[in-house]
Design a protein around this nucleic acid. Structure first.
Lengths: 220, 220
DNA sequence: ATTTAAATTTAGACAAATCTAAAATTAAAA
DNA sequence: TTTTAATTTTAGATTTGTCTAAATTTAAAT
């Protein structure tokens, strides 16, 4: 099976979103892909016709087995290329994403497997995310507390461990929710508070108590 | 400047064709790209609008300086990736063309230059064709077609100009590859076929069509 | 120098992927 | 439970790259 770059991008984004919540919504996917909900709907129909997606209109959607397999192959390519760029071509880990976004659409399966071998079958990419093997097997990535996250390492909120109303209210006010991408800009040893940066927003400060209960995983 | 894959393919094909004859025709380009003359005309208009091409309708066309520069960058990428595939990923020289056709459209200039450095700034690709440097400078090799080689003059295969799978398969079967040392034992004027001797092997016969596409240089 | 043939271009269509604006559906609030 | 708001989908348009069939221009042949 060979898919267009756009289809691969949709599959990949759906895969990531449905790790969070089992079901994915049109708006969420549109936001993830920086496109419009109407465009997403158009693509969903095509993916459904190709039997990669379980989808009923107005009711959300998720990948079926075929879709997942396809998505994982794209993710495998992306992460192997990132590894190559950082380890062999001396790129910084923060500048490889865009290039890998292009390279991941090169279709040759043999190329990917040869690249994998050339790199020594690495199992995590430069951001710490697991690289699926040739059969699409995944080592699920671990989530850590925000308080353990290294400085300037992009992460994504994957869970909130203490769900008191007060806590959720505080997080909502600071625009932090499930799936929020963020990184730590500064750590204050005095009280272990953190300054956290969310894309397109001014930095916010979180106490150690809050940070301890926000679980994150490496962003890709 | 960033161009679509299709535009890059057109630029590259025009560049190659205009090395042969100074001016390129619509039909020739359509044949080279396996497309239709009408499609070529459509694209020519766009390339002219982008000032990459000197073109007047019904009168043929050729690249201007901008167009040449763009074409050379694509050729550079193609040949560097081929070199990478053969030297680092252990592909055979006869199976890399198609993959490089995809990789050549990855846009990052930095990637190409890093790849070049990683490979040790090679100056010829696995087929013996020169690789333009970062500024687009070309070491043009004096190589001639096997069909022009004088009788009994030792030579070495330096490039294969038509890289169809069928052609490469035929050459492989006759044990002719890059670097093969050979000489012409007999020329048959009837059909311009050649009898060619390779060291330690019985002579083989090559059609004029094949011989035209095998490029050789003097054996030293 | 006409006529015929080949090459090239135009005209009009189509598929893929996207968009905007409006309509339909579901969810939330009064 | 209505009304309002948010979400999602449809309808119709646009862009890029391609095609076929017909028209135009150039080249070749009688």
């Amino acid at each position: 099976m060979k898919f267009s770059a756009s289809k691969e991008n949709h599959l990949k984004a759906i895969f990531h979103l449905q790790l969070e919540q089992g079901i994915v919504t049109t708006n969420a996917l549109a936001a993830a892909l920086q496109t419009r909900p109407a465009s997403v709907t158009d693509m969903l129909k095509k993916l459904k016709d190709q039997k990669l997606l379980l989808y009923e209109r107005y009711k959300g959607f998720r990948l079926n087995n075929e879709g997942k397999k396809a998505a994982i192959q794209v993710i495998r390519k992306h992460r192997l290329w990132e590894y190559f760029l950082v380890k062999k071509l001396q790129f910084g880990w923060d500048e490889v994403h865009e290039i890998a976004e292009e390279l991941e659409h090169i279709s040759s399966k043999k190329l990917v497997d040869r690249l994998d071998a050339f790199l020594g079958f690495p199992d995590t990419d430069p951001h710490g995310d697991p690289i699926p093997d040739s059969q699409g097997r995944f080592l699920q990535r671990r989530q850590i507390s925000l308080s353990e996250l290294p400085l300037n390492k992009p992460a994504q909120v994957s869970a909130i461990s203490s769900q008191t109303t007060e806590m959720l209210e505080l997080l909502q006010h600071k625009h932090i929710q499930l799936g929020t991408r963020l990184e730590i800009r500064k750590k204050f040893p005095f009280d272990n508070s953190l300054e956290v940066k969310i894309r397109n927003r001014p930095p916010v400060t979180l106490s150690a108590q809050v940070a301890k209960n926000v679980l994150v995983k490496d962003d890709e």
